[in-house]
Structures are given as C-alpha cells and as structure tokens.
C-alpha cells in the first residue's frame, strides 16, 4: 500500500459503477429539486423500482413470455417508474411542497419493506442471478482479461459497464441542457420561484410539476437498472433513505440547478470518500496512526466528509458551480 494505490482507488471509485448510479439519481433530483423545487426525498424509490424490475423480470420470471429479454425488461422498468411518479404526484402535487417530501420519503421505505417481505420479489435475501447477459453479450471490447488505463485496471465487463454508464450520463446531460434552456425549463424555474405567479400567467403548473417528477424519476430508475445489470444482485437493504440524502449532498456540493452540478458533485464526493478511507487505512497500515482500528475507518470517513460539507456550506453555500449572488437573493 502506498500513496499511488490510495489515489488509484479514489479515482477508480469516483468514475466507477457506484458513482455512476448515484450520479444518475442525482441528475434526476436536479431536475426535480434543483430546477422545479420539488422536494423529492424518496429518489431511492425510483432507483429501487429500476433495480427490482430488472431483478424480478430477468431472474424470478426467467423464461416468461412476458419478458423475452433484457431490453423489454428495461422498457417495463421505465414504465413502472412513470407509474410510481403518477402515484406519488397525483395526490400531492396539488398540495403544498412539503406534502410531496413526506409522501416520497414514506414511499421509499414502503417500497423497500414490501420488497423485503415478499418472497415472490426476492424477500430478505434479495435477488441474485444473471440479470444482464444480453448486455454483456454485446460487449465490443476485445477478449482479454484486464484493461489498463494508466494506473487504472478494469475487467472486460467493468470497462463495458463504465463506458456505457458515462455515455448514458452524457446523453442525459445533453437532454437536461436542452430542456432547461427552453421555455419549458423556464416554466419549471418559475415554479421553483413562485408557483402562484406562474399560474397567474396562464401556465398549468400541475402538469409541469408532474412532468418534472416523472422525468427525474426516470433518471433515478435508469440508475437502478444500471445497478442491477452491473452488480447482478439486488438486495432490499441497499435501498435505504440515506441513498437519497447522499444524492442531495452530491447535488448541493456540485451546485443545484446547474447541468454539470451533479457530475462535479459525484466525482468529488466519491473521490473524497474513498480517498479518506484509503488514506486512513494506509496510515494505520504503516503505523502512523495507532489510535484507530481499520474497522473504524468506514464510519470515520463519513464524519470527515460531513465536516468537509459543513465547511463547504459555510464558505461556499452555493456549491462548486453555483453563483453566490443568485443564492443571496431572497426567495420571494
């Protein structure tokens, strides 16, 4: 173990599968919270729906005529995501913003507990099995065991997953950019600032809020699909509320309502998290730190990241890409 290893680990995690999943979910939150002001505290519900749809359709219902292959399963997953957004949005989007927050945080937990307690959906064991064979079958990378990019080394499957992940992210970023510079995006930002003003100007805010909720949810579900395909395993207890809060952390760190905000946020968040962990392990390993056990490093890295975030909020509350002038304006 040396400093080079620490950095390599940190970089590979910052651009790795987990970071990609969080980033996709956060890009959805950016549309919902950053641009439209919708307080969705249950983004994990959309991620879980994506993961479980793939898990159930590809493993539990293996060979069913209803789901002939992965691609159809992905389409179903996206449709289920829309259904979830409608279930959450129809009753709450007419009400004040805080109701959506309450309903979404509850929905995230309900969905997790339903998956955990229903055997047909994997139960407490979750679902394990081949979930992405069709995906790995079209891997265009040449047959070799490892791919080395400088100090980074990936397996053939990993390099395919990560490549597709970042291509999908790039396309969705492009979509976000195109949407948010349009008059539609302007209405969303108007809703964030003052819904009644937008209504008084002849725009249906309910429709736009619903569209934003659905679109942001779909981004999260794409993250969930990616999760299932990349990890080939879906565990109910991975879908905890903390996921959503990490997404908010990433969003605010990078800068809300900025197209590239979630990207910067996710890269830095995962780099720091892994860097701190590996660096502490290194120091323990070579005897510099004697008052910590390696098992204590996991929790401590979150403490340190928390301190870092507090410093960020104090010295740069608008996030890395944000505009301080904009934040200083009163909301009304």
């Amino acid at each position: 173990m040396d400093m080079g290893f620490v950095l390599t680990q940190a970089i590979s995690q910052a651009i790795g599968v987990t970071a990609i999943i969080y980033l996709l979910a956060t890009m959805g939150l950016n549309i919902q919270f950053g641009y439209t002001g919708l307080l969705n505290f249950g983004q994990i519900a959309f991620v879980a729906v994506g993961s479980y749809a793939i898990g159930v359709f590809m493993v539990q219902w293996q060979g069913s005529a209803f789901v002939p292959n992965l691609w159809v399963a992905i389409i179903y997953a996206l449709l289920l995501s829309v259904v979830l957004a409608l279930i959450l949005g129809v009753p709450t989007l007419r009400l004040r913003a805080d109701y959506l927050a309450i309903v979404t945080i509850a929905a995230g937990e309900i969905i997790r507990l339903v998956f955990k307690s229903t055997d047909a959906l994997g139960g407490a064991q979750g679902i394990n099995g081949k979930m992405g064979e069709e995906f790995y079958a079209i891997n265009p990378f040449p047959q070799q065991d490892r791919f080395d990019f400088g100090p980074l080394s990936y397996t053939r499957n990993d390099v395919w997953v990560v490549t597709v992940g970042w291509v999908v992210i790039a396309l969705l970023l492009l979509l976000t950019w195109a949407l948010m510079r349009s008059p539609w995006g302007r209405v969303l930002k108007g809703i964030r600032e003052d819904e009644d003003a937008v209504r008084s100007l002849g725009k249906s805010t309910y429709l736009r809020k619903m569209q934003a909720l659905i679109l942001g949810g779909i981004f999260g579900t794409i993250g969930g699909i990616f999760w299932a395909v990349a990890k080939q395993s879906v565990q109910p207890d991975s879908f905890v509320p903390a996921f959503t809060f990490f997404c908010y952390t990433i969003l605010i760190l990078g800068g809300a309502a900025r197209v590239m905000g979630p990207v910067i946020g996710a890269l830095i968040f995962w780099f720091l998290l892994v860097f701190i962990e590996q660096f502490l392990l290194l120091l323990i390993d070579n005897g510099t730190i004697t008052f910590l056990e390696p098992t204590q490093v996991g929790p401590i890295r979150f403490i340190l990241v928390g301190v870092g975030l507090m410093l960020l909020m104090i010295f740069r509350p608008q996030g890395i890409l944000g505009d301080k002038k904009e934040l200083a304006l009163d909301a009304r």
Partner: peptide, 20 residues
C-alpha cells in the same frame, strides 16, 4: 391559468417577481 389564457390576468399584493 385558464383565466389568464382567456385574457384575465392579475398581479399580487406582495409582488411575486421570480427572484432567481
């Protein structure tokens, strides 16, 4: 919003300028 489309638009006592 339907009234506004029909040509009837209002302002508010506490101004609702969209700050950001």
């Amino acid at each position: 919003h339907r009234l506004a489309r029909k040509g009837m638009v209002r302002t508010f006592q506490l101004t609702k300028s969209l700050s950001r």
